[in-house]
Design a protein around this nucleic acid. Structure first.
Lengths: 194, 194
DNA sequence: AACCATACCAAGCAAGCGCTTGGTGTGCAA
DNA sequence: TTGCACACCAAGCGCTTGCTTGGTATGGTT
């Protein structure tokens, strides 16, 4: 795996606070329905001042997405570092993805998933290779666990079924209910195992 | 099952053509990035003329969604009418949903799924009971097939995993490829069976 | 021939949008 | 004390948006 030189923005900095506020707003209202005035208001500055930190609104979306995929990759790599058996590795990856989608800063990943087409083609291009690297990680792990997986479904289809299942939790799962993230993880794991 | 008094709009009427154009635009560009001028242009009229057929842009979205869920319900009920065994019924339902998402007029259902939050609360309210009736249909079928389903996953979670898997196909599946809708159907069915 | 509902045009308004510009206050370095 | 980078304000520009208004062409009914 390539060496990452990821630098996550300090969440206490002005830029960091803007990114967090933007992520939450983008997730709950959607990118287009979120105005730069909304974002500015959420951190207590005026709208024009945003453009001291970001060139365009589209760049804010790009930055939110970049941060989210970077932090997910960092967390996943560190979680995998100490795990050997194929099934346990899959479990850890599912859990990471669920936590990233549902966790306290999960707004960002949900934005990456559901606002992708709102991003300008230029910024899509910049992020594409990271997304592809991430999906490659999954496919590698899937092919390493073939014998444990449900037969009769091609691995790349199975991964996409799993993606859809996990992403879709944003629309119905509430962490406060009876179902924990661990429960969800086990069920999603059962879904793809034989 | 209740008697439906569904009246699907004639696709050759002015209103029908507008709905179809709107559905396609909403799906490809998203609701917010689609202007009423875009829709008008797609059917060859001026933007102001739209409001002779619909009160607001939000009403267009609501109408698109209502048509899509109604046509899906009609198709699913007629498909189920002649099928008895639980597994075959599930297969038929999966196929219906996939065809509605991917088929020639599948724009509409994708819009219903992914632009829900763009709809005004008032129009959401109007559609909610139809959506709930639809989900109830699934849950009923699931509980009727419990013995064939994958154990260890609560039925309502399983249905949501399946929903996510099927909905997500909008983002990656192309009907022109090597994979047919029938292939997808069988794989999705395998996913939920034991 | 008179009527009328339907479908559309032509023009534009008011509001909201992303973003710009020129300036101000603050804290740190020399 | 001066200088300067940084974070932000105050004001508003230019454009796009959903939607309105008043009028016109058309085709069917009486």
């Amino acid at each position: 795996m390539e060496q990452r030189t990821t630098t996550l923005t300090d969440p206490d900095s002005a830029r960091g606070k803007l990114l967090q506020a933007a992520a939450e707003l983008f997730r709950t209202k959607g990118y287009d329905r979120t105005t730069v005035r909304d974002i500015a208001n959420a951190v207590g500055i005026l709208s024009g001042s945003i453009f001291h930190h970001f060139k365009t609104k589209d760049d804010i979306l790009g930055a939110v997405m970049e941060e989210s995929v970077n932090s997910l990759l960092v967390r996943m790599e560190s979680a995998l570092a100490t795990i050997d058996t194929p099934v346990a590795r899959l479990r850890a990856m599912i859990r990471c993805e669920l936590e990233s989608i549902q966790g306290e800063n999960g707004h960002a990943l949900a934005v990456l998933v559901y606002e992708w087409r709102s991003l300008s083609p230029e910024n899509q291009q910049k992020l594409l290779h990271i997304r592809e690297a991430y999906e490659q990680l999954w496919l590698t792990e899937f092919t390493g666990a073939t014998e444990h997986l449900k037969p009769g479904i091609e691995p790349f289809v199975l991964r996409r079924f799993l993606s859809g299942s996990l992403y879709w939790t944003t629309y119905w799962y509430k962490e406060s209910g009876a179902l924990t993230i661990s429960d969800l993880t086990e069920m999603a794991l059962k879904l793809i195992l034989k």
